[in-house]
Simulated scan of single mutants.
Amino acid sequence: MSKREKQAIGQQILAAFRAAGAQEVAPDILLEAETLLDLYGEDIRARAYVTQDPIRGEMMLRPDFTVPVVQMHMANGAEPARYCYLGEVFRKQDHGETRPEHPRDNEYLQAGFELFARDPEADAEVFALFHDILAPLNLQASMGDMDLLMDAVRALPLSGARRAALLHHIWRPRRFARLLARFATPAEARSFPESGAPWTGLRSPAEMQARIDRLRGDAAEAPLAPQWVERLERLFAIGAPAPEALRQLRELVAEIPDIAEAVDRLERNLAALAARGIDVGAVHFDASHGRHTMEYYDGMTFSFAAAGHEDWPPVASGGRYDALAAVLGQAQGRSIPAVGGIIRPGLVHELGGQILGKAA
């Protein structure tokens, strides 16, 4: 497949985004790494191409469009706006010392749409836009809600430090499961004998003492009751057509009242999608969906995947990232909710997507 063919599909998608009122932008390919790498999360940090500039310091090839677009918007104001873009992103895909038989592209094209709005129906608008563009490809639409999971973790009767640790690893299911299991068993007391030897190491004496104090405090914590572990595991395992998932979540609200607001929001989003002509019964709701997406998503997440191509990444994906917008706007005292997503024109072309849906 030539770059020209991918670009042609990308331009069709871009036209659909412009028709939805988006202004086209083109973030730099080479970005300052220091601030941005901290915002991407561990997965993208490990896969970014980073280099050293003698004057500008650490720089990286653009691994994503959302963060630089948000950075641009929050620097210029926090008013409602919508943007679109088309260009390459760069990520290390393959780990290990040998080249895989079917390597994934380290450089690939993305077309994206970002909506900054205080409209409660923004989630439904963005999902419906992507759904309509991709409709002829008969993709499987899936959605989740990271706020739902984070509210459930925040409701656990644990210390702030333990809740923070679980929230930090919520995008890493195996680590999260190990941590939850450890918190559900009595902590082992740690011995820290007094010594007259000088402090040594990369950390300062104050940092090391703070770490010792945290470990001592953690050892004194009571284990998490089994019913809370069971409730959390049931929540994370919910996967069903969206209306059925909503019913299961309603039942869980009685046991985890803190998720009620997120469940109400899901119900409103599904109603808004149905009003836009989308069959919500064909949308798969996976409570853990957002745990496999970008770490800056903190609300609704969505993806569109090609059946029979389980080894592919999603053809399209996105979600809500209010906290990211708030972090990048805090220096100017600005904040506005935001939601967006990307489509991979290369995968659309491989599926024969020469003509996109009604949104195009």
Rank of each mutant, 00 (worst) to 15 (best):
M1Q: 05
E5N: 07
I9Q: 04
Q11N: 10
Q11I: 10
F17R: 11
A19H: 03
P27A: 06
I29G: 08
V50T: 13
P54H: 03
G57N: 04
V69H: 03
N76Q: 14
E79C: 05
A81T: 09
R82K: 12
D105A: 15
E125C: 02
Q140K: 13
S142C: 06
L148S: 05
L149K: 01
A152E: 10
L156T: 08
R163F: 00
L167A: 10
P173T: 09
R175P: 00
F176P: 09
P193N: 07
S195N: 02
W199K: 02
L202N: 11
R203C: 01
I212L: 13
R214F: 11
R216K: 12
P226S: 07
W228C: 10
E233Q: 15
A237R: 14
G239H: 11
A240I: 02
L246K: 02
L246F: 00
L252P: 07
E255S: 12
I256T: 11
I259N: 03
I278P: 04
A282S: 14
H284V: 05
F285T: 01
D286V: 09
A287H: 07
H289K: 13
R291P: 02
T301G: 02
T301W: 01
A306S: 07
G308S: 08
D311N: 07
P314T: 09
R320A: 06
L324N: 03
G329V: 07
Q330R: 14
I336S: 10
P345I: 04
P345D: 05
E350G: 05
K358P: 02
